[in-house]
Design a protein around this nucleic acid. Structure first.
Lengths: 117, 117
DNA sequence: TTGACATATATCGTCAGACGAAGTATCGTC
DNA sequence: GACGATACTTCGTCTGACGATATATGTCAA
């Protein structure tokens, strides 16, 4: 749907957001993001899991294996305090970035009166 | 200012936007983007020129060398018809992506009543 | 009961692209 | 003539998204 390059800067934020307020296992994170986006955001599993492993390495999330009888084994991830901070920081950074992009690419620049004419 | 990963999906759009309505040389593109963003967007020259070369390879922009007497040599880039189309498409894609991200990462999901509870 | 499909995770290799570093060259100015 | 701004080039590195492939269990229908 959206290009890999576009997603590149937001993958962590997607996962962080999905884990805001409750723990989830990897597969569930993918599903939740798909639902929340109205089907627009479909993350390949390889992307999803590699993102999860990277984030756990960074200490933003913590995985916990659950193997209840009669159920598949799943790893439930939870935000660490560092992850909470990262979520907060990245939400703000994203808003600032989006505002900046809108400003820079806005159609209001074309034609006369341009910068450094 | 902003992370490389965040910029990754928007570099082409930045350059395309800078060339919307008039041709510019590489160094100028960098300066214009910096000014338009209020100093927030500072592109390393290596990033800027490699983006330009890639885009010319794709046929989105066309360079023309100008060597007027008493001036430095400069390559002025202009949008091709394909570049115009790409600009239009990418502006729309960016808006759609930003809306999707806002929807997905919005703070309105935390706590009760969540998806797939 | 078998076959298909959803659930659930792991690992590997490839590819694109942002960037730092280092280099070349011209122009103005102090 | 040294310095800083202008202007472009090339190379190597690193990160991260993704396709492919593998493994295994649960559910449901023919």
């Amino acid at each position: 749907m959206f290009s890999s390059d576009l997603k590149r800067g937001s993958m962590d934020l997607f996962v962080l957001s999905a884990l805001d307020g409750r723990s989830r296992h990897g597969y569930d994170i993918g599903k939740v993001l798909e639902v929340r986006s109205g089907g627009q955001l479909q993350l390949p599993v390889s992307t999803l899991y590699s993102t999860l492993y990277r984030m756990e390495d960074r200490g933003w999330i913590k995985g916990r294996w659950v193997e209840k009888g009669g159920e598949r084994r799943r790893c439930f991830y939870t935000l660490t305090p560092a992850g909470q901070t990262a979520l907060h920081t990245q939400r703000q950074e994203w808003a600032a970035f989006a505002a900046m992009v809108t400003l820079v690419i806005g159609a209001g620049h074309a034609g006369l009166g341009d910068v450094a004419e």
